[in-house]
């Protein structure tokens, strides 16, 4: 399915909520997140994509596309997100090196790093189609 589509975020919600390890790691997290994938026209990604989700005590209660008010905003060029999903760039390193721009309380976000790491592992299991120069990247294997 296409990365950051409505179908993708619904799948993301399903995958996160059905994983006991993620539920355990995210327990106590009640926040909302907006993930902004900025365009890279020179790499064939013409438009910005925005997805979001809200979490109540570790359970994803809603996932959507488009902007709305959230506790955190994480933004980066499309390719940075692809690198994170590929495993070439760690999500925590992406935050602390500012390749992933964080708006919201960074320390609070980093304190939930276990759930973030597990989330990325789980997202790698979703068969995902990327745009432009990233179309050759293939995801969809089992999480460990």
């Amino acid at each position: 399915m296409r990365f950051a589509s409505m179908e993708y975020v619904k799948k993301m919600q399903e995958v996160l909520n059905s994983d006991e390890q993620h539920r355990r790691a995210a327990k106590g997290e009640t926040d909302s997140y907006l993930l902004v994938l900025d365009p890279e026209p020179d790499k064939g990604v013409a438009e910005r994509h925005i997805v979001g989700y809200s979490m109540v005590d570790g359970e994803v209660t809603e996932a959507w596309t488009g902007q709305r008010k959230t506790t955190f905003v994480l933004s980066a060029p499309y390719g940075v997100w692809v690198s994170i999903l590929e495993g070439r760039l760690g999500p925590i390193a992406a935050m602390t090196t500012r390749r992933l721009k964080i708006r919201g309380n960074l320390l609070k976000l980093l304190s939930g790093s276990d759930s973030t790491l597990r989330m990325v592992e789980l997202l790698r299991t979703i068969p995902t189609e990327f745009e432009g120069e990233y179309a050759s990247v293939k995801l969809g294997q089992e999480a460990g």
């Binding site: 902004v36 008010k69 905003v73 933004s75 708006r103």
Partner: peptide
């Protein structure tokens, strides 16, 4: 209006991120 628009995102857009 921060109740309707995501303020972080709006300011990022107005200031080249």
């Amino acid at each position: 209006n921060p109740e309707v628009d995501n303020l972080d995102l709006a300011v990022a857009d107005l200031t080249e991120d």
